[in-house]
């Protein structure tokens, strides 16, 4: 899908800002998960700045689209997007992981405005998203529910229980992204617990499956539009991504799953993202 030049430029600018926030906030926090935050920065940017109905003045607006970050450890990207979207002050990002902060190490819907579901224990976000989608159908609301899963996260058996249920209940108001960056904490997904072939598995569970480049805004938005047109079943967008995307020394490095950059590393990263 060809995006208008100004839309593309806006999204690229936002994604860059969000990536800069991720690097800065993690360096300030001294811990956290940069790799999987950077890998979904473009997907989350597209959702919050192009796709989803959100009202920054009313984060709990009933008609809003919902976003569940099932891979909760990637919350720096969510916090950065919520701040950039104007749901809370950008300044607050510096408080990540610190005592008394609204920005917890993993998402807490009770503390952070705009966070739809508390996640962090992997495998649970898809079920919650299913529940929201079921409620939307019961209430005849036209809001849509988006959820991002990790490719390591889908080792969890509960994901497949939820995959079955979403298809069984025909949740066509649900769109999932699979952050297929190929790496989990202990190594590549092929080494640790091979979950491939991924599109085939989701198709076998009854989902509409699309495969895209998760760093191409045109492809992300086109896939979301196709998902909206699909009736009677949920859509899984398998997004080929690069873990650590945008920071040269983090890209495809498993070691950057759960380690914060030092001050010097952060400076180098920010220079690359200038």
């Amino acid at each position: 899908m060809e995006l208008a030049a100004e839309t593309k430029a806006m999204l690229e600018d936002k994604a860059k800002r969000i990536r800069r926030h991720i690097v800065s906030m993690l360096a300030e926090a001294g811990s956290g998960h940069p790799g999987g935050s950077l890998s979904i920065a473009d997907i989350v940017t597209a959702l919050y700045f192009q796709v989803m109905k959100v009202d920054p003045a009313r984060p709990d607006w009933e008609e809003r689209d919902r976003f569940v970050l099932s891979k909760g450890h990637a919350c720096p990207v969510l916090y950065a997007a919520l701040a950039e979207r104007g749901i809370f002050p950008v300044e607050e990002l510096k408080t990540l992981r610190k005592i008394n902060s609204r920005l917890q190490g993993h998402p807490d819907m009770k503390k952070t405005p705009g966070v739809e579901m508390s996640t962090g224990s992997l495998g649970q976000g898809l079920a919650a998203a299913n529940g929201m989608a079921l409620a939307g159908k019961l209430d005849k609301k036209d809001y849509r529910v988006y959820v991002v899963l990790g490719d390591g996260e889908i080792n969890e058996g509960m994901i497949w229980e939820a995959a079955m249920a979403a298809a069984h209940y025909g949740l066509d108001n649900l769109t999932a992204f699979l952050d297929f960056n190929g790496l989990q904490i202990d190594g590549s997904i092929r080494e640790v617990m091979n979950s491939e072939p991924l599109p085939e598995k989701w198709a076998a569970f009854g989902w509409n499956v699309l495969t895209i480049d998760g760093h191409d805004f045109g492809e992300i938005i086109a896939a979301v539009e196709k998902a909206k047109e699909t009736k009677g079943r949920p859509t899984m967008i398998v997004a080929n991504t690069v873990k650590g995307k945008g920071v040269s020394f983090m890209e495809n490095q498993v070691g950057w799953h759960g380690n914060a950059p030092s001050k010097e590393q952060a400076e180098q990263a920010l220079a690359e993202l200038a």
Binding site: A127, A128, N130, G131, M132, L134, L138, A162, A165
Partner: peptide
């Protein structure tokens, strides 16, 4: 029947789905 969801033999998913329904205003 419209407000009853049999989740199959999958208790973890049942509780997680209930959480999502509650987050959207239902009393599951």
């Amino acid at each position: 029947p419209g407000r009853f969801f049999n989740m199959g033999i999958a208790e973890a998913n049942m509780i997680g789905t209930a959480a999502g329904l509650a987050a959207a205003g239902k009393i599951p």
